[in-house]
């Protein structure tokens, strides 16, 4: 054990309460995953609501970039989107949200205010397009989304 630490004696109660049973949990896991897939309508309502709020903060940020509260709100929303959309199987949406989060953490430094503002608007635009899709993976032929994703990747490189 690490020096300076003492072991705390405690007997947990769970082993007596939660018995092992034969079989596999795979069926229960499959039921959960199937149920989640049926929530498409709720997902769309939720994400469009969140993206509307995000849009408001992006607009406010563009008007007053020195006010850090809007950038912090953008970061928080991106953080929520990243985890929630991924848990719902929307991995590309999660990736774009991750990219938006990274942008919000780094701020305009190195990009300049105008370019940074355009970058976060591009993220929002791409997130809206992804949210409009029905399935978890966007059709690769949707040029607008592909262009958006490529542009996002190149924001800090250019």
């Amino acid at each position: 054990m690490s020096s300076g630490y003492e072991t705390v004696e405690y007997r947990g109660w769970l082993s007596a309460k939660i018995p092992k049973i034969p079989g596999s949990p795979e069926a229960a896991i499959a039921i959960a995953e199937a149920s989640i897939r049926t929530m498409n309508k709720q997902y769309k309502e939720w994400i469009h609501g969140v993206l509307k709020i995000l849009s408001g903060h992006i607009q406010q940020y563009a008007k007053a970039p020195s006010d850090g509260t809007n950038l912090d709100s953008i970061r928080r929303i991106a953080h929520e989107l990243r985890g929630t959309t991924g848990s719902f199987g929307r991995m590309r949406t999660s990736d774009v949200s991750q990219s938006l989060y990274d942008q919000a953490v780094r701020g305009p430094s190195g990009l300049g205010a105008a370019k940074f503002s355009a970058a976060i608007k591009l993220h929002h635009h791409t997130l809206v397009k992804l949210a409009d899709l029905d399935g978890p993976d966007p059709d690769p032929k949707l040029d607008e989304i592909v262009k958006g994703l490529d542009a996002i990747k190149n924001i800090r490189k250019s």
């Binding site: 705390v8 939660i18 949990p25 896991i29 995953e33 985890g83 999660s94």
Partner: peptide, 25 residues
């Protein structure tokens, strides 16, 4: 995150199978 049903079950089962030893410092 993102957390899947399999991941969540796995973590609960892992905890039950191997509950941690607590230390205080």
């Amino acid at each position: 995150k993102p957390v899947s049903a399999a991941d969540l079950y796995n973590r609960i089962a892992r905890f039950l199978l191997s509950p941690p030893k607590y230390v205080r410092g």
